[in-house]
Amino acid sequence: MRYTVNCSIVFPDLPLLDRPAAAAAAGFDAVEFWWPFADSVPGDHEVDAFVTAVADAGVTLTGLNFTAGDMPAGERGILSDPDRASEFADNVAVAVGIGERLGTLGFNALHGNRRDDLDPRVQDETAVRSLALASDAAARIGAVALLEPVSGVDAYPLKTADDAVAMLDRVGSPHLRLLLDVYHLAVNGDDPAAAIDRHADRIGHVQIADAPGRGEPGTGDLPIADLLARVAAAGYDGPVSLEYKPVTADPFGWLTREGAPA
């Protein structure tokens, strides 16, 4: 099993640009980030500073989120918002440009929350077009776009693996895959093991955190080792993202404990 560290949630006390080096110092050779900029289209100097921080750390940027809007305010993506379709398209160009420089394999696209003033059908039609654009752009550098069920925000419409796969089917692109986050699925009442069994051929990326709490494996009730063995047996051979909020003194200690996947 290969691991990549989500630096947007791990190392929360470090400046963002110091986190790739911290991941390398902890023994990892791969990282991923949520969208690391305040703006959907940051300036060239911001992009260059981010690329330099990752490259100088000697790690690969395996994953990068497209812009998700104002996440602290509750936004979870903009790709289904027809008023922001051009903003999303511009962001895709920037994100894929970064990925081309850093060897990125996947780009996570959050659907976006429902808007009370919009017909859900209009939002989903916008999402289909945006996801097609994103997946085509990712494919140009040999990567894929990813779509993720998310917990914690009632207005976010994709809560189960089935919800996300139904949207994948509407887009119909071989370059758009399911991001299977066992924490989000479990919190939403979906069964991660059953989701793996049903959708093994659609999984493009795997993220882990324990539930409840979203801490590292062993701090909750999820059978993380069994789930990783299941997804590997189903044919997934990509990196597994450590996307959790550290709650112990050694957030990576579970990797060396007996019975942990390695």
Rank of each mutant, 00 (worst) to 15 (best):
Asn91Gly: 15
Asn91Lys: 00
Val92Trp: 12
Val96Met: 03
Gly97Arg: 05
Ile98Trp: 00
Gly99His: 09
Gly103Gln: 06
Gly103His: 00
Leu105His: 07
Leu105Gln: 14
Leu105Val: 02
Gly106Val: 08
Asn108Ser: 08
Asn113Leu: 12
Asn113Gly: 09
Asp117Lys: 02
Asp117Thr: 15
Leu118Pro: 13
Pro120Val: 08
Arg121Ile: 13
Val122Glu: 11
Gln123Asn: 04
Asp124Gln: 14
Arg129Gln: 14
Ser130Asn: 14
Leu133Ile: 00
Ala134Ile: 09
Ser135Pro: 03
Asp136Pro: 03
Ala138Ser: 10
Arg140Gly: 13
Ile141Ser: 08
Gly142Val: 10
Gly142Tyr: 14
Val144Ser: 01
Ala145Asp: 13
Leu146Glu: 14
Glu148Tyr: 09
Pro149Thr: 09
Val150Ala: 09
Val153Tyr: 01
Pro157Trp: 02
Pro157His: 06
Ala161Lys: 03
Ala161Val: 08
Ala161Ser: 11
Ala161Met: 02
Asp162Pro: 03
Asp162Gln: 11
Asp162His: 13
Asp163Arg: 15
Val165Pro: 05
Ala166Asp: 14
Leu168Val: 11
Pro174Gln: 12
Leu176Met: 07
Leu176Ser: 09
Arg177Trp: 05
Arg177Leu: 13
Leu180Ser: 12
Val182Cys: 02
Leu185Ala: 07
Asn188Ala: 07
Asn188Leu: 12
Gly189Trp: 00
Asp190Leu: 04
Asp191Gln: 06
Asp191Phe: 01
Asp191Asn: 03
Pro192Gly: 05
Pro192Ser: 10
Pro192Met: 08
Pro192Thr: 13
Ala195Tyr: 07
Ile196Leu: 06
Ile196Gln: 07
Asp197His: 07
Arg198Cys: 05
Arg198Tyr: 13
His199Tyr: 15
Ala200Tyr: 03
Ala200Cys: 13
Asp201Trp: 07
Arg202His: 06
Arg202Phe: 08
Ile203Phe: 00
Ile203Cys: 12
His205Arg: 07
Val206Pro: 00
Ile208Glu: 01
Ala209Cys: 12
Gly213Val: 07
Gly213Trp: 10
Arg214Lys: 12
Glu216Asn: 11
Gly218Tyr: 07
Thr219Val: 09
Asp221Pro: 00
Asp221Met: 08
